[in-house]
């Protein structure tokens, strides 16, 4: 049994025929071929699949594609400027070496933007507590925390879309 789903992704209307059980992350990765959104744990623990849905960071491995019907999504591919200029959060991660293997990075960047949107001037403790939903095995979080703190001063909590 397939269903048609339609939504906006990175400012463009998209639609596709999916099985009812198709997860949102599968729709993004397999149907739309936006492979920057990753699957790390299948159980909504690691946050590598985090995308923005209607202004909120959500874990796309933990919901059905059907649940995003009509929603406005932003994936990591839609974070930078159209000319390729990095978003302040992406730039802060680069400047502060907040990424190593890069696998958790898309979800981490999106969660970090959401974090600053909700808490514009976080303390280190607040950053660490609010990053609870994203796992990184490479960086030990030290430089991710630094990057987010720095991005708080450069507009890191504002999403273009």
């Amino acid at each position: 049994m397939t269903v048609k789903v339609s939504m906006s992704v990175n400012g463009k209307p998209v639609s596709g025929e999916v099985e009812e059980r198709t997860l949102l992350v599968s729709f993004i990765r397999e149907t739309l071929r936006l492979t920057g959104t990753h699957v790390g744990c299948d159980t909504a623990q690691c946050g590598a699949c985090t995308v923005v849905m209607d202004g909120r960071a959500v874990k796309s491995c933990n919901m059905l594609a059907m649940q995003a019907e009509g929603a406005e999504l932003v994936t990591i591919e839609g974070i930078a400027e159209p000319d390729g200029t990095l978003h302040p959060m992406q730039e802060a991660f680069r400047q502060h070496h907040g990424l190593q293997c890069g696998f958790c990075t898309p979800g981490m960047v999106i969660s970090a933007i959401d974090l600053l949107k909700n808490t514009p001037n976080p303390t280190e403790r607040e950053i660490r507590e609010q990053l609870d939903g994203n796992l990184c095995r490479c960086t030990g979080y030290h430089n991710i925390v630094k990057a987010i703190a720095a991005a708080a001063q450069t507009g890191g909590g504002v999403l273009r879309r």
Binding site: L34, T35, G36, T37, T75, I76, E77, I79, A80, G84, L86, Q90, F93, R94, L99, C101, G102, T105, P106, V109
Partner: peptide
Amino acid sequence: DYRFLTGE
């Protein structure tokens, strides 16, 4: 970094 930060 650029490719990892942009999903590429």
